[in-house]
């Protein structure tokens, strides 16, 4: 059984530090001057829509993509010079599973461990520990192609842990998984976080960011739009609650005009009206006092999704 002993980091020096980081493909800047620090043991997220530059940033942190401009330091080393050295201390879970389908499940771990100079005698028991951690012990001899999506993801995470990495990079770790598989994965990642592993992840799932991240940056078009803990971002960019009102698609626009002065901010969508307020019930009462009777109403807590949509817009990004 794998047991990691949590320890307080002996230093608060950031394990990852970026200043004005830029990655250009010809004239297109995929990452356009971002700066951030990640502390040891911290769980840090890049939240953003597709094409925001999250994966490019992750590849630069993973020391496999050369930056165009700016400064980047991983465990105090420059990835442009010390790529293999840095990568020896990382675990990487890419956006798409790239397990070796020619090998069986356990062999994937054994072979990958060799890339970190680990001996075969060490890797045998280590692979078994990680299979247990990833709840894949029963599948040790299975073919990779026979695993479900969630199992493949867990195997990819187990592979990334074969070298006891100091930093685990996860690029959209749960995209495409069903809710059960996502929750199992979150549980495993949360354990790693508790044990002190520095987690750096990208996601466009708000609930995932709220579950896993101590701190995150919202990225859009290669730049950082906002930074903070999930709670502080909600405080800063949204209200405590959101009142959702539906008056019917044809009536929403006309009703919205009459709602001026209700709540801190009103957002009109084709199918509903959102009223941002600290007390949703109170605002609902005010709406009713105006003689307006919504078809449906819902008061909910503000979420990161509200922050995300406010910062990155509601138009479809493809």
């Amino acid at each position: 059984m794998l047991t990691l002993v949590p320890q307080q980091s002996a230093s608060n020096e950031p394990v990852i530090s970026a200043r004005n980081l830029v990655k250009k493909y010809k004239d297109f800047a995929a990452v356009d001057g971002i700066s951030f620090d990640i502390a040891p043991g911290e769980s840090f997220g890049f939240l953003g829509p597709n094409g925001a530059g999250k994966s490019t940033t992750m590849r630069m942190i993973g020391a496999v993509s050369t930056r165009t401009e700016g400064d980047l330091s991983i465990i105090g080393l420059d990835p442009n010079v010390y790529g293999p050295e840095i990568r020896s201390q990382l675990g990487v879970v890419p956006q798409s599973d790239n397990l070796d389908t020619e090998l069986r499940v356990r062999d994937n771990l054994l072979v990958y461990g060799r890339y970190f100079g680990l001996s075969r005698s060490y890797l045998g028991p280590k692979a078994d520990e990680l299979l247990e951690f990833a709840q894949l012990t029963e599948k040790a001899k299975a073919r990779v192609d026979d695993l479900s999506g969630g199992m493949k993801r867990r195997l990819t995470i187990a592979r990334a842990l074969i070298n006891n990495p100091r930093i685990l990079l996860l690029d959209e770790p749960t995209t495409g998984l069903d809710p059960q598989a996502r929750h199992i994965l979150w549980d495993r990642l949360f354990r790693l976080k508790e044990q002190g592993t520095t987690l750096v992840l990208t996601t466009h799932y708000m609930d995932e960011a709220e579950q896993l991240c101590d701190r995150l940056v919202v990225v859009d078009k290669g730049t950082i739009m906002a930074e903070g803990s999930p709670a502080s971002l909600i405080r800063q960019y949204s209200t405590r609650e959101v009142l959702e009102l539906r008056f019917g698609s044809e009536n929403n626009a006309a009703v919205a005009k009459r709602l001026k002065g209700i709540g801190d901010r009103i957002e009109e969508l084709p199918d509903r009206i959102l009223v941002y307020a600290d007390n949703g019930e109170h605002e609902l009462a005010r709406v009713t006092e105006l003689g307006l009777n919504p078809v449906t109403s819902l008061v909910r807590r503000s979420s990161l999704e509200d922050v995300f949509l406010r910062l990155t817009g509601r138009s479809l990004i493809e």
Partner: peptide, 24 residues
């Protein structure tokens, strides 16, 4: 049951990285 330690400083990590990097 095996135990791994994840607490570290950048200098410790750097020393390990340099040794392993050279080997690889």
């Amino acid at each position: 049951m095996s135990t791994a330690t994840v607490g570290y400083t950048n200098d410790e990590a750097k020393a390990k990285a340099m040794a392993l990097g050279a080997k690889m």
